[in-house]
Design a protein around this nucleic acid. Structure first.
Lengths: 138, 138
DNA sequence: TTTCTTCTTGCAAATCATTTGCAACTATTG
DNA sequence: CAATAGTTGCAAATGATTTGCAAGAAGAAA
């Protein structure tokens, strides 16, 4: 059974299958990252409210995670075992979001030393700048 | 001459001094972090538009920097030599934002290896979770 | 398959942070 | 103290996200 098949993913999490959800989730699975607006641009027949409601449902179930808030939009990515948490790099010129390599345990541990922390639920590392391709062009 | 005196800071950056700006900047200098809304709550006589306009001006001059977008609000911090770039930890319970220790060069370098990057303008590292104090209480 | 119940959808309206236009006001310069 | 350029408050606009609600679709049971 394909683990990342939209139908299976929904079934496993006991989320009712609808045309809209299947379409949205397959898109999410195949994109490096997505925002509500991007999804709607490519699936104009699905209401924005439906998209936002579905994203929130997937967040609760841990099927997607928030990765960054950029240019007034929240970006998300699909969670799977081949895609452990990692940082992102946003090119301000072409507006693309790149994934950074995941940090290993030792690397991560240098980040999380702080006397005030009890539990960490989410780590977000985002860099902004200009990518090589854009640098060449200008 | 005090480097972090609001009046001096504005003068040095050729920003016209007004009552509103002096009041806002002194608050910013003394806070670990701030949002437009927090500032307005404590200085109700200053218009929100003025606050946003001033923040943008300070961002351009490099006097403050964006640190995180949380709960629908952008947070900023005052920039000074005793406060190099560093990560933050946000307690979802008490909604406080803590500073993490700054990373040294070697530590930082593990974060920035990515073939796509040409130039990095901004790095944002934010963790969300629960702080020790809140953990004790509940 | 039909029916029943529950969940989901699209639509329109509401929210909420942030931005903008504009006329009145104020800091700075000479 | 006048002239000028930059600032302010106010109200209205914007834009992402959220919500209420009635109609429609999915899943369970007969």
């Amino acid at each position: 059974m394909k683990k990342c098949d939209p139908g299976n993913v929904l079934q496993r999490s006991k989320i009712r299958k609808t045309r809209q959800r299947i379409e949205l989730l397959s898109k999410m699975i195949h994109e490096v990252s997505f925002s509500a607006k991007q999804l709607q641009k490519e699936m104009a027949d699905i209401d924005l409210a439906t998209i936002y409601r579905f994203i929130h449902l997937l967040l609760e179930k841990g099927i997607v995670r928030e990765i960054a808030f950029l240019d007034g939009h929240q970006f998300y990515e699909y969670v799977c075992e081949h895609h452990p948490p990692h940082g992102h790099f946003y090119c301000e010129h072409c507006e693309r979001l790149f994934c950074l390599a995941p940090l290993d345990f030792d690397q991560s541990s240098v980040l999380i030393r702080n006397a005030e922390m009890h539990r960490i639920d989410q780590i977000s590392l985002v860099m902004k700048g200009v990518c090589k391709q854009c640098a060449k062009q200008s």
